[in-house]
Computed example of a mutant assay.
Amino acid sequence: MTSTTAPPDDRRARQWLAACALAYGLTHHIGFGLAWLGTVGDTRWADWADVLTPYTVLLTAAAALHAGRADVRSWAVYLVGAITYVEGHGIHLAANSVGNDTPGIAVVHMWDEVAGHYIWYAGAALVVAALARTLARTPAPAPLPALLLALGVAVTWTTNSLEGGTALMGLLVAGAFTIWGIRTRHHLGRVLIPAFAPAFIALTAYGIWQRGFPQPTELGWL
Rank of each mutant, 00 (worst) to 15 (best):
M1L: 13
M1P: 13
T2L: 14
T4Y: 15
T5M: 12
P7A: 13
P8N: 10
P8R: 13
D9P: 11
D9H: 12
D9S: 10
R11Q: 15
A13M: 12
L17A: 15
A18H: 14
C20H: 14
L22W: 12
L22Y: 12
L22G: 14
L22C: 14
G25H: 14
T27G: 11
T27P: 12
H29F: 14
H29W: 14
H29S: 15
I30A: 15
L34P: 14
A35V: 13
W36G: 13
G38S: 15
G38I: 15
G41Q: 14
D42F: 13
A46T: 12
D50A: 15
D50I: 01
L52A: 15
T53Y: 10
T53E: 13
T56G: 08
T60R: 07
A63F: 12
A63V: 10
A67W: 10
A67V: 10
V72P: 00
R73D: 06
S74Y: 01
W75Y: 07
L79Q: 03
V80D: 04
V80S: 08
G81W: 07
A82Y: 08
I83V: 11
T84A: 04
T84N: 04
G88M: 05
G90H: 04
I91A: 06
H92Q: 08
H92N: 09
A94P: 01
A95N: 09
N96P: 00
N100T: 07
P103L: 08
G104A: 04
A106H: 05
V107E: 09
V107D: 07
V108A: 04
H109S: 11
H109M: 05
M110R: 07
W111E: 01
D112E: 12
E113R: 08
E113I: 00
V114L: 12
A115E: 03
G116N: 11
H117D: 08
I119G: 01
W120M: 12
A122M: 00
A122R: 00
V127E: 02
A129K: 00
A129D: 00
A130L: 02
A130K: 02
A130R: 02
L131D: 01
T134N: 03
L135V: 02
A136E: 00
T138S: 11
A140Q: 09
A140W: 05
P141H: 02
A142Q: 09
A142W: 07
A142M: 05
A142C: 03
L144Y: 05
A146V: 07
L149C: 11
L149H: 11
L151N: 06
L151C: 08
G152D: 06
G152K: 07
V153G: 11
V153H: 10
A154C: 05
T156F: 15
W157N: 09
W157Y: 10
T158D: 10
N160V: 13
S161R: 07
S161K: 07
A167S: 13
A174C: 08
A176T: 06
F177T: 04
T178E: 04
I179C: 09
I179N: 03
W180S: 03
I182S: 02
R183K: 08
G189P: 02
G189M: 04
L192Y: 02
L192F: 05
P194Y: 01
A195R: 02
F196K: 00
A199I: 02
F200A: 02
I201L: 06
L203E: 00
A205M: 01
A205H: 00
A205P: 00
Y206N: 01
G207A: 03
G207C: 04
G212M: 04
P214G: 06
G220Y: 10
W221H: 07
